[in-house]
């Protein structure tokens, strides 16, 4: 599904390159659940963003489901991630002005899904996450765990093949964290490929594979 080849990213500081990512080679098969670990500043989030096509490295190649990502135009690339990738953030990043229902519905709007169909899909999702009762609330009226549930629901609404999560439990207490991780496991069993960035050994254990990052390099 994903092949990264010799991905490097740096910025210049005092005339010398400082590497954020260095020679990353990585392959992810469909159905995997990967945890990326490493200390602060090791490049985890950057790597995730590169995979999510939100960030571009200075060097290297990226093949996503048979597409050479870096050779694609901006528009094709966003169409690609729009259809195949869902994002979950540590800070949830729900839209404050929209209700739970509307937050979840928004990706479908952007994909021009018809009204009736949209309704059915969102209703299913609310059902599945057991947040039907909260659908008319605004994010500020929810607890952190609930907000993250909505965030995940929103990420999954367009049936992506790949779910990218940047410290999804970072702002949650341990009980809420466990629930989210359980959910990830479940989703993975249903066939969604997941890559998460995490600090926690425990959460990393939910994955099928762990990639350790230190100073921008993968530790073997």
């Amino acid at each position: 599904m994903i092949q990264l080849e010799r991905i490097s990213k740096w910025h210049m500081q005092g005339g010398r390159p400082v590497f954020i990512l260095k020679d990353i080679n990585m392959t992810v098969a469909e159905g995997e659940f990967i945890s990326i670990m490493g200390p602060s500043g090791s490049g985890k989030s950057t790597l995730l963003n590169v995979i999510g096509m939100l960030d571009v490295p200075n060097e290297g190649g990226y093949n996503f489901m048979g597409n050479d990502v870096f050779k694609m135009k901006e528009k094709q690339r966003s169409a690609l991630y729009k259809h195949h990738i869902g994002f979950v953030f540590q800070a949830y990043h729900l839209i404050d002005e929209l209700t739970v229902y509307e937050n979840i519905e928004t990706p479908l709007l952007y994909q021009d899904v018809k009204g009736s169909e949209r309704k059915a899909i969102v209703a299913d999702m609310l059902d599945k996450f057991q947040i039907v009762g909260k659908k008319d609330l605004f994010p500020s009226q929810l607890s952190g765990g609930q907000q993250q549930l909505v965030g995940i629901a929103r990420a999954l609404i367009a049936k992506p093949k790949l779910l990218l999560a940047d410290e999804p439990t970072g702002n949650l207490n341990s009980k809420q964290g466990e629930e989210i991780m359980g959910l990830f496991k479940e989703l993975n069993n249903e066939g969604v490929t997941i890559i998460q960035v995490t600090h926690s050994e425990k959460n990393a254990e939910y994955g099928s594979r762990i990639i350790n990052l230190l100073d921008g390099r993968i530790q073997m």
Binding site: K75, F87, H93, Q111
Partner: peptide, 16 residues
Amino acid sequence: AKEIGVRKVIGADRRQ
């Protein structure tokens, strides 16, 4: 800015 970022990540293109 945050709203814009989120909307883009969940699939909004510029035109929208």
